[in-house]
Design a protein around this nucleic acid. Structure first.
Length: 566
DNA sequence: CCGGAAATAT
DNA sequence: AATATTTCCG
């Protein structure tokens, strides 16, 4: 093995020592970048022509973890060659050319990010995230050489054993001090094999195991599996037991590398804190919920839980997943306002386990919200004295395709989306309740409807509207000091270049840790690039139906948006 | 018992 | 604060 445990230990402060290949024809620029990177303890190799760079890379691919490649109007084809060749590497494109088309093409070709020049420290500081992200998202066996050590190292740091690394015992993640982690199920139009969106849990059972080795406290583990069909009859509600006072819901988003995890939570408040793990997969319509513990099919972990198929008739809290709600709405609409009474709705929904009470309750809320949101004429007497703070909600119309964007693809922090719709009452982004408005730009399959705080979608991918269903809907609310520090917000409010922010060491540390812990999460600084799909989609929207094998130099390089076909 | 709304609970 | 459950009333 390349990296022994000791070696890995040395990489304790991980990002340092990351080997970055810089390819920039402009020697001055290259030197500049180099010095900045080196100041951050990255190890830099600069190249001023792509042939050299390619040679160096092919000779010693393991010498690099990441590449920053400059594009200019002259070398478009050439550098793309590098981009297309060194696929193992996460490659960040950079350029003086700030045109949309160029940027998207870079992304479409697999770049993990496009950073407009000049490259400030702030932009550069977090590039390591791409390495982590890619390392973890790359397919199991296909893990590119250069990233392998990184992944192992990180895994090691976390005491997280990857299957393909140590097919040994159960895998355990020790989360030392993670604050509450809410489940998050993110998805974007999963399609980029380049940068696979975390968690698109189409997998069967077994895909996700919650291994519970240290069940001191009462853990409520619920694992649901979905069977796909919409018309299936065996639908059941996902219910959860007990309380989620301090529930830790951790979802490991494994793409191709099944990672079994076992979360060991130090019993902090043994008195009342129940660890409650549940993975919410909102994909299918039918969610089968297993309660009582994690079951362990086919795993010799020796932790077979208690029988649970039996109807544990404890109180179940119905989790109104989007799918469930959808059914609900459907039923209601089908019945009409007049006939929409709990019992009928319940009937139409055909959801096992759902009680009339549940429906009634939901209906109550549904109606309530509906009234608030659709202020017909009657509603106007309820002058909503709300919002003394005049939040700038999205004024119902799209935002510019590209928020004068900059390095960090962070949209202005989205308001908190609730499943009940916008407080403002505008259908700009109808969630689940209101009538469908504009077709969401991205698949809304699994949007987290839970009211997580600000999301930072990939601005790139959002040409017209803020993705209400932020594909990545969830940061653990206070998982990192990051938000507290307000970085993201700063980012947003500093539209031009980089944002001025110099996180304290601690914070960085924390962020690093978190990012490493949860590589499937969107990158903290919004570094997450748009999915290739998104880019392609947008390109096509511009009339570029496909990416030419090679850019035709000037023609479409920077003015790519020109041609219009149908 | 049902539906609806208010009161609670988490 | 939001959402689900329970209780109460007609």
């Amino acid at each position: 093995m390349v990296c022994t445990a000791n070696d890995l230990q040395e990489w304790k402060d991980f990002p340092k020592g990351l080997r970055v290949l810089v390819l920039d024809e402009d020697t001055t620029s290259a030197a500049e970048i180099r010095s900045k990177l080196e100041a951050m303890d990255y190890v830099v190799s600069t190249f001023c022509n792509e042939t050299e760079a390619l040679t160096a890379f092919s000779n010693e691919p393991e010498s690099f973890h990441l590449a920053i490649v400059e594009v200019n109007s002259n070398n478009g084809c050439g550098t793309f060659k590098f981009l297309e060749t060194a696929k193992e590497l996460p490659i960040i494109m950079t350029s003086n050319i700030h045109c949309l088309s160029t940027m998207m093409k870079c992304i479409a070709r697999g770049a993990v990010e496009f950073l407009p020049k000049p490259l400030s420290e702030d932009k550069l500081r977090n590039i390591w995230q791409h390495v982590v992200h890619k390392a973890f998202n790359a397919g199991g066996g296909l893990l590119p050489e250069p990233l392998k050590p990184v992944k192992e190292s990180i895994a090691s740091m976390l005491h997280l054993k990857l299957e393909n690394v140590e097919p040994d015992s159960k895998i355990s993640v020790e989360i030392d001090n993670l604050s509450e982690i809410k489940e998050n199920d993110q998805e974007q139009s999963a399609g980029s094999d380049k940068y696979p969106a975390p968690s698109t849990p189409q997998l069967k059972q077994g895909a996700r195991l919650l291994d519970d080795g240290d069940c001191q406290d009462q853990n409520n583990c619920s694992a649901e599996k979905e069977n796909g069909e919409q018309d299936g009859d065996c639908k059941s509600v996902e219910t959860t037991y007990g309380d989620s006072a301090a529930d830790d819901t951790i979802l490991i988003g494994e793409t191709k590398t099944p990672v079994k995890t076992m979360i060991k939570k130090d019993s902090i408040d043994a008195s009342k804190s129940e660890s409650h793990m549940s993975s919410h997969l909102h994909n299918g319509n039918s969610l089968i919920n297993v309660i009582g513990g994690a079951d362990n099919p086919g795993k010799a972990s020796g932790l077979t839980n208690t029988s649970l198929s039996k109807s544990n008739r404890k109180k179940m809290k119905v989790d109104w997943t989007p799918e469930l709600h959808k059914k609900f709405v459907h039923a209601v609409e089908q019945l009409g306002v007049d006939q929409a009474i709990p019992s009928r709705i319940l009937e139409l929904m055909k959801v096992e386990g759902l009680t009339r009470h549940n429906v009634a309750s939901h209906l109550q809320k549904y109606r309530m919200h509906k009234r608030h949101i659709l202020p017909k004429e009657e509603d106007r007497r309820w002058p909503r004295p709300r919002d003394p703070v005049q939040k700038n909600y999205y004024p119902q119309h799209p935002i510019m395709a590209f928020p004068t964007y900059h390095s960090n693809h962070a949209l202005p922090v989205a308001p908190v989306y609730s499943m009940w719709g916008q407080p403002g009452g505008h259908p700009a982004s109808v969630q689940m309740w209101g009538p469908p408005a504009y077709p969401p730009w991205q698949a809304t399959e699994s949007w987290q409807w839970k009211p997580y705080s600000g999301m930072h979608a990939d601005a790139w991918g959002c040409p017209v509207m803020p993705p209400p269903h932020g594909p990545y809907a969830s940061y653990p609310q206070n998982a990192s000091g990051f938000h507290n520090v307000g970085v993201v917000d700063n980012v947003c409010s500093t539209p031009q270049n980089s944002f001025d922010f110099h996180p304290a060491e601690e914070v960085i540390d924390k962020v690093v840790k978190e990012a490493i812990n949860k590589p499937w999460l969107p990158l903290p600084l919004g570094l997450k690039p748009p999915s290739t799909d998104s880019v392609l989609s947008e390109l096509s929207r511009q009339g570029i139906s496909s990416i030419p094998p090679h850019i035709n130099g000037s023609d479409s390089f920077c003015h790519g948006a020109g041609s219009h076909h149908d």
